[in-house]
């Protein structure tokens, strides 16, 4: 079966300012299935945001292609919604108008009332209703602004939703609340989500699968870690799950040391594909005798 989103031999090089070139990542390959929630974790400078911009169509890769539903992605499209880290709300429009602006662009033949009701419905889903929706973004807190941004993206029913460190600028408590809201909205849809994050716990809570990137330059998408914790997930309950710390330790270990060791080398001609890692301590076949986390690497 063809994957929903397929990234093939993606390479990005930038001029290094001294006449040469700097390779951010080379021959990256990975796939995202329909309805999947995929997080990508990695250190700063590994090219996560570059990948995100290429997926959004805001940047062109040096080589390689991104295919969605079998068609090559070129340029931005309403099929790929983006939530930016800095919210990117238009400050001269009210909260409601920021959402209707997007809904009008997506559904140009809708009547004014339909656009309005649709926007109000999605704002309500992120917990914004009443007078708040007539305020300007500057009169909202950071958390509320990001809620508007999420409502704007979901209201457009994109085929692929791209989240670029959406909670990076928020304090830990607000972040938790909005993560829960994101999970709530997402669970009701078949929305495919691709999200950049720095936060391991956030990734485990939200994702079906976590892609791990090594450090740049010549970064690789080294591993694809399945999150073997059943949904619906609740922040306070998942930490009790036997797989939680096994997965978490694996991720911490990767970001702490292996991301450096596994960093790619120049001239890698062969395509880089992530190894699938599945850690499941509830699976009797995998039950470790000593309790050390078992890594089962499967190449495909």
């Amino acid at each position: 079966m063809k994957p929903f989103l397929s990234i093939e031999n993606l390479t990005q090089r930038f001029p290094d300012g001294q006449g040469g070139t700097m390779t951010v990542f080379e021959n990256a390959n990975f796939r995202v299935e329909k309805g999947e929630f995929v997080c990508i974790l990695g250190h700063s400078g590994c090219g996560k945001s570059t990948i995100m911009n290429i997926l959004a169509g805001l940047a062109e890769p040096t080589s390689g292609v991104v295919k969605m539903d079998g068609f090559e992605v070129s340029g931005p499209s309403l099929d790929r919604g983006v939530v930016f880290q800095n919210y990117s709300l238009l400050p001269w429009l009210s909260t409601l108008k920021n959402v209707t602006f997007a809904v009008k662009a997506r559904f140009p033949d809708w009547s004014r009332e339909k656009v309005h009701d649709h926007a109000v419905k999605y704002l309500d889903m992120v917990g914004l209703s009443g007078d708040v929706i007539h305020r300007k973004p500057s009169q909202l807190s950071g958390g509320m602004r990001q809620r508007v941004s999420i409502a704007r993206a979901f209201a457009n029913h994109p085929k692929l939703l791209l989240l670029d460190e959406p909670f990076g600028a928020l304090d830990a408590l607000t972040r938790g609340t909005i993560q829960d809201e994101l999970l709530k909205i997402w669970s009701g849809t078949e929305q495919t989500v691709f999200m950049i994050t720095h936060d391991i716990d956030e990734a485990i809570l939200l994702a079906d699968r976590i892609l791990l990137m090594t450090n740049g330059p010549f970064a690789r998408v080294a591993e694809s870690v399945e999150i073997t914790i059943p949904r619906p997930r609740v922040r306070t309950e998942i930490i009790e799950h036997p797989n939680f710390y096994a997965i978490r330790n694996h991720l911490v270990h990767f970001l702490g040391t292996r991301s450096r060791e596994l960093a790619g080398q120049q001239g890698g001609e062969r395509p880089n594909r992530p190894e699938t890692v599945r850690i499941d301590k509830t699976d009797p076949a995998d039950d470790p005798a000593e309790g050390a986390p078992v890594l089962r690497a499967v190449n495909h």
Binding site: A56, G57, L58, P76, S77, F84, L90, W92, A105
Partner: peptide, 26 residues
């Protein structure tokens, strides 16, 4: 960022000019 919002919403250049750039530069 604001121009990118216009681009990801597939606004044409004329609509981008009137609905994003003009109010931003006003």
């Amino acid at each position: 960022d604001w121009v990118n919002v216009a681009r990801t919403h597939e606004l044409g250049s004329l609509r981008t000019a009137f609905t994003v750039i003009l109010p931003a530069a006003a």
